[in-house]
Nucleic acid binder design. Structure first.
Lengths: 228, 228
DNA sequence: CCGTATTTGTCCGTATGTATG
DNA sequence: ACATACATACGGACAAATACG
């Protein structure tokens, strides 16, 4: 056993989680953060070496991430970070529009005042990041805002489904818009209107605004991909 | 190597697919068909022995099925067939209602005459199975009818998402309604109305009928679970 | 509470298939 | 086309944790 002593931060994880889970999380993080680009090949031995584990847990993590839609396996050839096609991204946007419309309607019907306070705080923070032209922070908060809205519906299955789609979309953006100008869309006004509609308990309007909000993202994708 | 010669039908599979995939499919089939009931514990060595493979592919299949929502893992304890709670089933029905409403609207807008012919044939077959009181056939055709509708939308991501939810609902029904009377609901009339609305290109109506159709299934579940 | 048996978690060796010169 | 190098697929052994008597 030539394995070096793990860092202190790793010990607690190693004790409570299986190595497969640790590897899975680490790879997912690298994919989502862009450390592993779509199309990149993952070598079992290499990954195992980097994480100081054997190939067993790595292979198990590969199977999990494959099912999660982040990796693709070619038998006897290797596993690759999935590349999402424009068509697939379009399908995801279409689905997201349906789900987000439901989210808007549902929140208008059953959000609590505490939930509303949270959303307003996130919208304010989003406006600040936008004014400061802080793209990373804006992106982070934008994801958090939408994710929190979905959570506040109280439907755990919806949360699960939604997050899966968002992960794949993130993969696509990283692939397609890598060299793109980092112009932040500034949807601050739209965000405010959505929260207002929810606060006003106008389910019809909140749903419509959410759907249109997603459709605009979809249109931006097409505009960025096709050199119109 | 004391492994017996595989059947001819297995050889082609072994050549084209990895053992992990074969094991995964086999386990999924056993779970969906009820051979493995919710809550049942799966022993690695036992499964490996039954399928004449080593524990490696079995463990990899476990990770994939865990991600697919059909198995649950407790560290150092084992993997179990997932048991879906009533609340979770309710969440899934709520989601399905949203998706199926979208399916109805979409089909009304873009179904082809060939697709319409297919749906009509399925509805007829469903009516026949209902008249013959053939519950198994009715269940099979009912799943096929709804699955085909989703396919005909042309949105592959939607198909993927929908099937995942249906699998989990099947798991729940198998768990909760195991001792229930096998009374078939006979939604023949509803099915006919849905197809009619689609054929009439009435998106609004088709969507509403689909949503209500799912909501009735949801209500039947609650009625079957709570002794009202 | 301790020791044993069983099961899972991890690691590594070997075979097979793929890519490359 | 052949041989070599290399990566994956699979199997089996060891270590660690849990269950049980």
């Amino acid at each position: 056993m030539s394995r070096p002593a793990p860092l202190a931060s790793e010990i607690s994880i190693l004790q409570s989680q299986s190595l497969t889970t640790v590897v899975q999380r680490e790879l997912e993080m690298r994919i989502m953060s862009g450390g592993l680009a779509p199309g990149a090949k993952l070598n079992e031995i290499e990954v195992a070496g980097q994480l100081n584990v054997s190939r067993g847990p790595v292979r198990e993590a590969f199977r999990a991430l494959e099912q999660a839609g982040l990796l693709r396996t070619e038998k006897n050839r290797g596993v690759f970070v999935r590349a999402i096609s424009v068509q697939e991204a379009d399908e995801i946007y279409e689905l997201r529009a349906v789900l987000d419309e439901f989210v808007g309607r549902t929140l208008a019907a059953r959000i609590t005042s505490e939930g509303l306070r949270e959303l307003r705080a996130l919208v304010e923070a989003l406006g600040a990041a936008s004014a400061a032209r802080d793209l990373d922070e804006y992106t982070r908060l934008n994801l958090a805002f939408h994710d929190r809205m979905v959570e506040l519906t109280g439907n755990g299955k919806l949360v699960e489904t939604y997050r899966r789609l968002v992960k794949e979309l993130t993969l696509f953006r990283r692939e397609a818009l890598s060299g793109s100008t980092g112009a932040l869309p500034d949807s601050t006004r739209e965000h405010r209107e959505i929260v207002s509609a929810i606060a006003a308990r106008d389910a019809e309007l909140a749903g419509r605004l959410m759907r249109e909000h997603v459709e605009r993202g979809r249109a931006r994708m097409h505009a960025a991909v096709d050199p119109a």
